[in-house]
Amino acid sequence: MKHRSLVATLAVLGLLCALPPFLPRFYVYIASIVLLTGLLATSLNLAIGYGGLYQFHHTVFYGVGAYGTALMLTRAGAPAPVAMIAGPLAAALLSLVMGVICVRLSKLYFGMLQISLGSLVWVTVYRWYSFTGGDDGIHGVPLPDLIASAKGSYYYTLAVTALSLLAMRRIAGSPFGKTLQGIRDNPVRSEAIGVDVKRHKLAALVIAGFFGGVAGSLFVVVDTSAFPDMMFWTYSLEVLIMCLLGGMYTFWGPFVGSSTLVLLRVFVSVYTQYWGLILGTILSLVIIFLPDGMLGFFARRFRKGEVRGA
């Protein structure tokens, strides 16, 4: 079993490495977007799937990660490695601050307060023309030659995504990850065995925010831009949908869900401009006709599935 999953992972990685020479430039770009969006969805899942935290505005960290990196490269003229790490660190820091404020609440109130805080960040970025470029965003971010080409940025994205997923998988299968699942399942019991629930939640939020920021900094590499729509609330809802469709209680579910949606969107857009209609229909059918909700459906999967064995 161990061997098989290792072989499968290596096979997928090998395939992804071999892809670019056979693809037109545009599809290499799309492949990069698929990877980093998968990373974004997986990072959200760490909070909402494993921790049961209603992280309703996750893309704020994605956006801040992107702006952090983009601003470092443009305004500060920092070396690329510094900029690449500055974005995620900014996202983690923001996540810590927001977490301290939100973590005393639970469920819907947590989600609502997070939406409020996230919207404040969004509107500030949106209006602060002199610093963030306002609603135009930042375009044409200069990158080192190595990662400036479509292929270069693809390989960079692939490497960072793979490492991040590996790290998150490790975290999910660690004592911390297990404790987090315990907290999602029963916070009262967790406290009664001596677990400081709030601090564990906070730690989970910071980790999720950090990796959300990593995805954001990758977006800057792939698209050479950052703009406020990345952190608008409805995009957070879209990422939630990706997690939901793929399966929140599994580690790889959100990655599968996000890849499916990103690719579907690219191919459907060729034929129709009514992507929202299609996505909305799929989503509502899934929610309505799996009577347990996808959560329950995947909960059962999850018990027999990979996270269990991790």
């Binding site: 469920k107 409805t234 939630l240 939901l244 209609l277 909305g280 989503l283 509502s284 929610i287 959560l295």
Partner: peptide, 21 residues
């Protein structure tokens, strides 16, 4: 009786549909 998260996403899917309609 559904979870709030599910209702939130369901209404979001309706928002997408209505937007395109």
């Amino acid at each position: 009786e559904r979870e709030h998260l599910m209702l939130l996403l369901l209404t979001f899917s309706f928002a997408l549909i209505i937007g395109d309609l």
